[in-house]
């Protein structure tokens, strides 16, 4: 595999929720998409899996290894989904049919999509459950989803992707619905398995730290646009877009110097709203006239790309 380029303005009939999103994932690399709720993060990854809301239409291109996802026949699309790309959902309790046993979930997947025999699928299912750190996998196969904790269930979800080792893993806030203590364990598991198997990953999250820790590149989204692309290692020190900075400032600090979190003033904008100029202008402390009238271009800077009129101005003392 090798390369996924994505450029998707989605027009759901009511309005655009993604405005010219460009993403490239190299084989084996991980990119993170961060942003506020409603910024279009989930829609972006769902577009990659061709999982659009009914009636949605897209323009632009989503290609996987040279193939256009939008042009795939239903057979090809099924093969693409069943063998090349996998998705881990936010809430495993919702994403697994609650009335089927865990074993059924894993085995049916392998039998249907990979054409394995039931016996072999069962054996492999036990293997992958063990691999994701589930004790006593034989017994867990006979458990119903409601009998497992969220963390265990998310491990089952991850295990299901290991059955066929996709080239691209789409992780849509995989730890948000989990208990804080299991979050780090599940994330570490995803990170380890991904690296071991050389899978590429698109990781969607609210959590900047987490994204920076497991991804190579971070994409910051705001109102359906990617406003900054930056290597994960540079995120804290050298990010330049005012929105990225504001997000970083809004995190709680461990040293507890501030009693209140620094919120970003104003309401977050969803991609649906029509804006002239820069989507972030209304909340940006550095906005000047042009920000309110003209859509900012994508500007290449040393750290990556940003969408800002003032990309080259020294807004920050340290950059």
């Amino acid at each position: 595999m090798e390369d996924l380029t994505l450029d998707v303005p989605v027009d759901s009939g009511h309005g655009r929720i993604l405005h010219g999103v460009d993403l490239t994932v190299e084989a084996g690399s991980a990119i993170g998409i961060v942003g506020e709720s409603g910024s279009g993060k989930s829609m972006t990854v769902r577009t990659v899996a061709a999982l659009l809301p009914p009636g949605a239409s897209t323009s632009g291109r989503v290609s996987f290894d040279g193939d256009q996802v939008a042009d795939m026949s239903s057979d090809r699309l099924r093969r693409y989904r069943s063998s090349q790309v996998a998705m881990i959902f936010q809430d495993p309790r919702a994403a697994i049919n609650p009335v089927r046993k865990v074993g059924n979930f894993l085995v049916e997947n392998a039998v249907t999509n990979l054409g394995w025999s039931r016996a072999r699928a069962r054996e492999k299912a036990i293997d992958v459950l063990r691999e994701v750190g589930i004790a006593d996998p034989e017994r867990r196969l006979n458990a119903f989803p409601s009998e497992l904790s969220g963390g265990l269930l998310q491990r089952v979800m991850i295990a299901s992707t290991l059955l066929y080792e996709p080239e691209l893993l789409l992780a849509d806030e995989p730890t948000t619905a989990l208990d804080v203590t299991t979050q780090s364990a599940v994330m570490a598991l995803i990170d380890r398995l991904r690296r071991e198997r050389g899978m590429a990953m698109v990781f969607v999250t609210h959590d900047l730290e987490l994204a920076a820790a497991v991804c190579d590149t971070i994409h910051v989204m705001y109102a359906g646009r990617i406003v900054e692309k930056i290597p994960a290692s540079e995120l804290h020190e050298r990010s330049r877009h005012p929105y990225t900075r504001a997000l970083l400032d809004a995190r709680p600090r461990l040293d507890g110097r501030e009693s209140r979190l620094r919120a970003i003033p104003g309401q977050p904008l969803s991609g649906l709203e029509d804006v002239t100029g820069c989507a972030f202008a209304a909340r940006c402390p550095f906005a000047v006239d042009i920000c309110r009238t003209d859509e900012p271009p994508v500007v290449a800077v040393e750290t990556g790309e940003i969408r800002c009129h003032r990309a080259h101005d020294r807004l920050w003392g340290d950059s």
């Binding site: 899996a49 999982l51 699309l77 099924r78 093969r79 693409y80 989904r81 069943s82 063998s83 790309v85 996998a86 998705m87 959902f89 809430d91 919702a94 994403a95 697994i96 049919n97 609650p98 089927r100 049916e108 997947n109 249907t112 999509n113 979800m157 299901s160 789409l170």
Partner: peptide
């Protein structure tokens, strides 16, 4: 959500509807 999850796993529409 599980219906979407099955779709991403490449299950056919008929299978998702009839089996799940």
């Amino acid at each position: 959500e599980y219906v979407k999850a099955f779709r991403v796993m490449g299950y056919s529409d008929v299978r998702i509807v009839v089996r799940h």
